[in-house]
Design a protein around this nucleic acid. Sequence first.
DNA 1: CGATTGACCGAAG
DNA 2: CCTTCGGCCAATC
Length: 112
Amino acid sequence: MTQTGFFERVYEVVKQIPHGRATSYGAIARFLGTGKSARMVGWAMNAAHSLPDVPAHRVVNRKGVLTGKHHFPGTQLMQQLLESEGLEVQQDQIVDFEKVFWDPNDMLIGNV
DNA sequence: CGATTGACCGAAG
DNA sequence: CCTTCGGCCAATC
């Protein structure tokens, strides 16, 4: 373990996302310190396909748009998953995203 | 090993 | 609103 790789860190963060919340790639990237390399988070998600504990559907882009829904099986699966968690999704975009937005740092704050 | 791509972000035109 | 560019890093071709 050790020195958790970049991907593992992303997984850990994504797995900590509270139920009914969502975060953005950039937020995670920034939290990990990668900041500008938010793309790597996206790549991590791609690899996360094998991980059952990585709710990629809770990870959206900065605007709260379900950019990665195309990577999910089906067509509305991602949206349905979010709606299943009490979120509102319209036109591939999370409603009141700023209200459901969960910052990884909040995880630390709540732990204190 | 070089070039391309990718579930992004932000700024600029 | 749309396109272009820079950045950052890893995986793939």
